[in-house]
Design a protein around this nucleic acid. Structure first.
Lengths: 108, 108
DNA sequence: TCTCTGTACTCCGATACGGTAATATTCTTT
DNA sequence: AAAGAATATTACCGTATCGGAGTACAGAGA
């Protein structure tokens, strides 16, 4: 476990540590999309969205394909989804637990 | 995919987006450790380490157990390791690819 | 070539985060 | 009760990062 490796792994996690970027990945789940399409589905400003796409691309989570004026972005592989699902599972569990707690607190 | 959920997931990823915290998790791989032990194995200052531990605890990645003066931290479950392994796999692949590229470049 | 559309980049202000140093808290021991 | 050890917390500083606005670049068509 060299420091360089840790930094690389941390950098990859950092690329996923942003709601906007997770929303982008989610929007790409069922196929490639152009930047314009993503602007609509994610409600991000174009410039902002583009920056996030660069980061996802740099981290290797998405691929790019130019076709005329448009650029199509797509998920690079299934690992991203696997990571997100693992994380979502934990979050969902916690949310359920919290609801129980809240319900219990309300009952008192 | 509500914004609140995205934020929670992003927050969890953010907890792993730091070399220092990954080093801590790595140090916990083969069993619980006290803060003092972690100070030695991770080379982090005590106050700094404690802050990172709080974040990992808040994110649910580690558990705490007090025993006298000492506090023992441990991995909360296997999901953390699964996440890290997934991420490390990608990084390792990329590193290998880079080495090939470098080797190729050197050869020319 | 000029123009228009889609995408990327740059600059800026605000905010968040990591590291350090100092201090506070908690528990044990005498 | 006092002192000492282990851990947590706070204040502060420097830096990174996000979002917005404007601008630059790339490709298509007249």
């Amino acid at each position: 476990m060299t420091p360089a490796l840790l930094a690389r792994v941390a950098g990859r996690f950092r690329a996923l540590a942003e709601p906007a970027r997770l929303a982008i990945l989610h929007a790409l789940e069922d196929g490639e999309r152009t930047v314009t399409e993503l602007v609509e589905t994610t409600d991000l400003a174009q410039g902002n969205l583009s920056k996030h796409l660069q980061q996802l691309f740099a981290a290797g989570f998405v691929t790019r394909r130019r076709e005329g004026l448009f650029v199509y972005y797509a998920l690079a592989d299934d690992d991203v989804l696997a990571l997100c699902e693992l994380m979502c599972g934990r979050v969902a569990d916690d949310a359920a637990a919290e609801h129980l707690l809240l319900a219990g607190a309300r009952r008192r």
